[in-house]
Measured scan of single mutants.
Amino acid sequence: MALNTPQITPTKKITVRAIGEELPRGDYQRCPQCDMLFSLPEINSHQSAYCPRCQAKIRDGRDWSLTRLAAMAFTMLLLMPFAWGEPLLHIWLLGIRIDANVMQGIWQMTKQGDAITGSMVFFCVIGAPLILVTSIAYLWFGNRLGMNLRPVLLMLERLKEWVMLDIYLVGIGVASIKVQDYAHIQAGVGLFSFVALVILTTVTLSHLNVEELWERFYPQRPATRRDEKLRVCLGCHFTGYPDQRGRCPRCHIPLRLRRRHSLQKCWAALLASIVLLLPANLLPISIIYLNGGRQEDTILSGIMSLASSNIAVAGIVFIASILVPFTKVIVMFTLLLSIHFKCQQGLRTRILLLRMVTWIGRWSMLDLFVISLTMSLINRDQILAFTMGPAAFYFGAAVILTILAVEWLDSRLLWDAHESGNARFDD
């Protein structure tokens, strides 16, 4: 018995066209964080690309023209004298008006014999932002004059995390709450300039795509075929072959399989920071003279006294001054041990922890910024005066060393310790 099946006739004509040209192939790229070699397709503007294995951002879609970056830099340069030299806060102490600005706080630190601690604050609040705007201006002028731009481009990517104007702005709020127990506070004209400078700096850093600047100024022929001998440069993120001198053909720094002496430098910085954190938390970090009496505060006791007036601000200072430094030390110690013992479990967790400490590390400088600003506000000789204690130097040095330890660690070593050939990683 035959089955009668109805015929289905399409209502619209289906047209099949042959592909007349070869589909576009992607360029081969190595991930600078996990060293995976993959094919990167062509990316349009405002599109980002991520590593298929570790999800690290390979290409950032946010990109401004150099002219727009230069305009932002010149605007920031105009704001800087007002943000640093004009009063941020006014207080009335014992019937006398006192003005506080950024430069005055750094000068008070240096004047009291601790120039190293003052230079830490100076670099993060004044030096690094000033280098940022002058570097962008150098790129703008240098591109037109045919100057060598490689050193500036190499420095810009590392400079971003040292620009800490946003953290200093939080420190202004913390210092205001600490001082309000002794005097009446009012915002100064410099505060508005400083807030504007923070906003412009944040926007500029978020749109400063150094890798795209490398592509514009020093374009290189990408690798179009897969080759395990391809290496990625950690300076400019170019994937290719080393030249005859073993250097990256684009930025001219040595092109090595792994960062040289990464573990040794990381261990040295980490152990030194552990040693410095002990006096930083045991010795007094601030000293207040009130009517001839002397009151010393460690980091913890200062947080407890701050909690009596504002528990939320005390929580912020606790996280930045105690929780973050010790968390960074514990995480980095764990990561280094996992590399030495070739741990194969929990790779995803370790990668996330490394990215976390990379982002939060700079916030530990908050305590030094609060001390710097408070020193310029309260300084009335023996009637009422505020000065920093010996722990300030140890704390600042420990924070900087932990930042350097994270920067010096080559994250690809975590993958080397893991089993080879993993296309995915999980716990």
Results as ranks from 00 to 15, higher is better:
89 L>C: 10
280 A>N: 04
170 V>M: 12
290 L>E: 00
421 G>Y: 05
323 L>N: 03
143 N>W: 13
337 L>G: 12
62 R>C: 13
148 N>M: 03
398 A>S: 09
365 M>C: 06
73 A>R: 00
64 W>M: 14
308 S>G: 11
316 I>A: 10
23 L>R: 14
155 M>T: 03
301 S>M: 05
266 C>R: 00
247 R>C: 09
75 T>G: 07
301 S>N: 14
174 V>M: 15
327 T>G: 14
24 P>M: 07
266 C>A: 04
317 V>K: 00
173 G>L: 14
339 I>Q: 05
310 N>G: 06
300 L>Q: 03
54 C>D: 03
48 S>H: 15
221 R>Q: 07
322 I>G: 14
335 L>F: 13
310 N>R: 15
369 F>D: 06
55 Q>S: 11
78 L>S: 06
370 V>Y: 00
218 Y>D: 06
310 N>P: 13
368 L>V: 13
286 S>F: 03
112 Q>T: 09
355 R>G: 12
312 A>F: 05
258 R>M: 08
365 M>D: 04
419 E>D: 12
121 V>G: 07
171 G>I: 01
224 T>R: 13
104 Q>G: 07
196 A>C: 15
396 G>I: 04
339 I>L: 06
122 F>W: 04
283 L>D: 05
151 P>K: 01
248 C>F: 00
61 G>R: 14
398 A>L: 03
267 W>H: 12
193 S>V: 03
115 A>T: 15
223 A>T: 15
218 Y>N: 04
98 I>G: 04
390 P>F: 06
427 D>G: 14
49 A>P: 05
256 R>H: 05
275 V>K: 05
163 V>N: 06
338 S>H: 11
299 I>G: 10
252 H>C: 02
28 Y>H: 13
359 W>N: 10
228 E>V: 13
201 T>L: 07
424 R>W: 10
388 M>L: 05
220 Q>N: 13
243 D>Q: 07
29 Q>N: 10
127 G>P: 03
268 A>V: 04
348 R>I: 15
284 P>A: 09
247 R>D: 08
283 L>K: 06
55 Q>V: 11
70 A>N: 14
221 R>N: 08
427 D>C: 12
61 G>M: 15
369 F>G: 04
335 L>P: 05
116 I>N: 08
376 S>E: 15
39 S>D: 11
425 F>P: 11
254 P>L: 05
154 L>Y: 02
325 P>T: 06
141 F>T: 03
213 L>M: 14
96 I>T: 06
420 S>P: 15
103 M>C: 08
418 H>A: 04
393 F>K: 13
136 I>V: 09
419 E>S: 10
126 I>D: 05
387 T>D: 03
143 N>K: 14
269 A>C: 03
201 T>R: 14
129 P>D: 05
147 M>P: 02
361 G>V: 13
358 T>P: 05
303 I>Q: 11
320 A>F: 15
132 L>D: 02
186 Q>K: 13
32 P>Y: 13
72 M>W: 02
362 R>T: 04
313 V>S: 12
329 V>F: 07
418 H>M: 05
74 F>D: 03
363 W>E: 00
295 Q>P: 02
308 S>L: 08
310 N>K: 15
334 T>P: 06
94 L>C: 03
141 F>N: 00
205 L>W: 15
197 L>H: 04
407 E>N: 14
99 D>V: 08
9 T>H: 12
407 E>T: 15
171 G>D: 04
421 G>A: 08
60 D>W: 08
295 Q>W: 11
14 I>T: 14
389 G>I: 00
361 G>P: 01
418 H>P: 09
262 S>P: 04
230 L>Q: 09
425 F>G: 12
37 L>G: 12
372 S>D: 15
153 L>A: 14
214 W>I: 14
71 A>G: 03
383 I>N: 02
214 W>A: 15
176 S>G: 06
420 S>I: 11
309 S>W: 09
